[in-house]
Design a protein around this nucleic acid. Structure first.
Lengths: 236, 236
DNA sequence: TCACTGCTTCGATGAGCATCGAAGTATTAT
DNA sequence: ATAATACTTCGATGCTCATCGAAGCAGTGA
């Protein structure tokens, strides 16, 4: 028999659980109360939801003192959620005219473990333009690291020996639900995001999904990857 | 605001609708009664479900006489469902020991518009071995047509001028939920499946997801793509 | 015209489940 | 010790929605 899709889908198919899951797309582990607030429900209800999500293997939980920290079980779950975001936004956009959005989320946000939003799309385009990566697909998740790219990234501090040991692909294109264009995911995308945080160029916002750049950090970031900086409110 | 994932997920999160959707992964358009039978419900209930799926933009419908033919709205929907199949099978497999399955489905089945199952994985491996395509990712959807591959496929009758006009990627790796390994998707994967049907080497089974090869067709297929043929019941 | 099939609408039924208040158990703080 | 916080369990409530019978509409064939 084919696996029973409806089980996993129904877990995601509740409004409260869905907002918890999208909150966890920020990559950070969150406590039960934080998630309850995020979903706008009481802690009792949240507790029930969270145990279902853990039973359903969508989340893992780590107990720390009197807190319980929840996070997505793996990148495959994150990928599933991102694809749901894509499909959903495509569907709802056709109804609600054009996609409104929190401007901070539009500009830069975390997609589980890599950068998403306008800036990440600009980054991706620059990488393609400078032939660090090749983008084969039009709509889809194909990307390839060139030898130039490998050399340049190595110079920037990437250790491909380490990246290659992980089971996940190094270089991967991920479709952005707000921009509808590709951005960089995979182990390399993760490295870039971490690099941003390590260098203090950007930090996660309180709502944990938006990424806030410092003015200086933004300039350095743009310079490092040769990204043409646009005005904050540039025409669509 | 972020799109409301729960809406789409809850559409899939019903057992009856889910079996309808997986049935439509066969790529063929099915009538309302066929889908009702597939889901094991009455036609009234099916009608209600189907109108929800159409409203929700997961399906498109085409009226033909007194019949209504339903099919998945696009390849992105199919991709979403396939990913759900992957996640679900990974989750349920860890509980229900090892994945049992209809042997015909395991061997060869249709995944929306391309071939899936043991044979498709074998095909993919042969293509990689002979350097027609390159497989970059380990777990993920990356694949790249080599120049050799392009030449060879052209010789087999593929017209890349036509394939390239479509918006979808030509060459794409798709993770198999039964095999947990990559097989070929994309426009090229679609071409191969159609080629199989056109040549009469294989046909869709009555249950519309399994693909039945003729003995002669299987041999010719294996020869064409240099696939080592295994015994029907080969050890896992 | 009449019968048959495919699909839809309406209404009633019933089950599942999200929700929260109240109470209970840990864990940490004062 | 006492209080406060974080989370869970239990029970009651109420809503949503899948389900099907009955009836109706439309397209097809005799």
């Amino acid at each position: 028999m084919e696996p029973n899709i409806s089980f996993v889908a129904s877990l995601i198919g509740d409004a409260a659980r869905a907002s918890m899951l999208t909150a966890l797309m920020g990559g950070k582990a969150l406590t039960a109360t934080e998630l309850a607030i995020e979903a706008g429900i009481t802690s009792q209800t949240a507790s029930s939801h969270l145990s279902k999500l853990v039973d359903g293997q969508l989340l893992i939980v780590r107990k720390q003192g009197r807190h319980k920290y929840f996070q997505l079980k793996g990148s495959d779950i994150a990928q599933l959620l991102e694809m749901l975001l894509n499909v959903t936004s495509k569907i709802t956009h056709s109804k609600t005219v054009t996609g409104p959005s929190d401007p901070r989320l539009r500009q830069a946000r975390v997609c589980y473990d890599h950068l998403a939003g306008e800036l990440s799309v600009a980054l991706f385009n620059s990488l393609v333009k400078n032939a660090w990566i090749e983008d084969n697909g039009i709509n889809d998740s194909e990307a390839r690291l060139t030898s130039t790219g490998k050399a340049c990234f190595t110079e920037l501090g990437v250790d491909f020996n380490i990246l290659n040991t992980s089971k996940r692909p190094v270089c991967k294109a991920c479709l952005d639900w707000s921009e509808r264009r590709s951005h960089l995911a995979g182990a390399l995308g993760q490295w870039i995001l971490n690099d941003l945080f390590n260098k203090g160029w950007a930090s996660k916002d309180l709502d944990s999904r938006a990424v806030h750049f410092t003015p200086a950090g933004l300039k350095l970031f743009a310079k490092k990857y040769d990204i043409p900086l646009l005005l904050p409110t540039h025409s669509h």
